[in-house]
Design a protein around this nucleic acid. Structure first.
Lengths: 90, 90
DNA sequence: TAAGTATTTAAGTAATTAACTAAATAATAA
DNA sequence: TTATTATTTAGTTAATTACTTAAATACTTA
């Protein structure tokens, strides 16, 4: 989760996650949505992958990215522990 | 939420939030839990407050801090939108 | 009012981050 | 094999962040 919190701090990376909602996209398709160089987006993808928020799948000369929901679920549990008399994460 | 994501990226700030689970604490009581200068903790508290994750209440010469759960709830909704065929935040 | 305690603000610095361009790798197509 | 396309890695730089110490502010008590 430590990595995920840092990964989520950046607005470009959060927008990438939004783009991946519902549909998988290649690195290039993702980069096309930003006014930023492809290497910069590649770096962001690397950070999101290291945080286990996304997964990559090589398809020929393309690399397809998709969401990995497990860390989002952990995040929900974490946040819920602050909303009640819950001491799950104590 | 933008501010909250950045605030949550730092482990010291996440630990402060954990300390505030269940009980309110003064700035000094919080600082005592860390091997770090009081001004540094004060800065972290300022960032958490700016992100609406905590609220401050002046009590005489002390300042008492407590959690504000609203942003945590927003965070839960946000994270949930990634876990299903949900397009709430689309 | 003067002294002490609690906390913040200010100013400076070292480490980290996010961007860039150029070069490398990998797959496909001619 | 050579060229083209897709993507990443490497190296550099500017901006941001997280700390520090010193000074300022605010309240309490003698």
């Amino acid at each position: 989760m430590k990595e995920a919190f840092k990964a989520l701090a950046d607005p470009t990376r959060r927008k990438i996650l939004d783009l991946l909602k519902g549909k998988d996209l290649t690195a290039g398709e993702i980069a096309d949505q930003f006014d930023m160089s492809k290497p910069s987006i590649s770096q962001h993808l690397k950070i999101l992958k290291a945080a286990d928020l996304i997964e990559a799948e090589k398809q020929g000369q393309y690399i397809s990215y998709h969401l990995n929901t497990t860390v989002f679920q952990e995040l929900i549990s974490w946040a819920m522990s602050f909303t009640k008399g819950d001491d799950t994460n104590a």
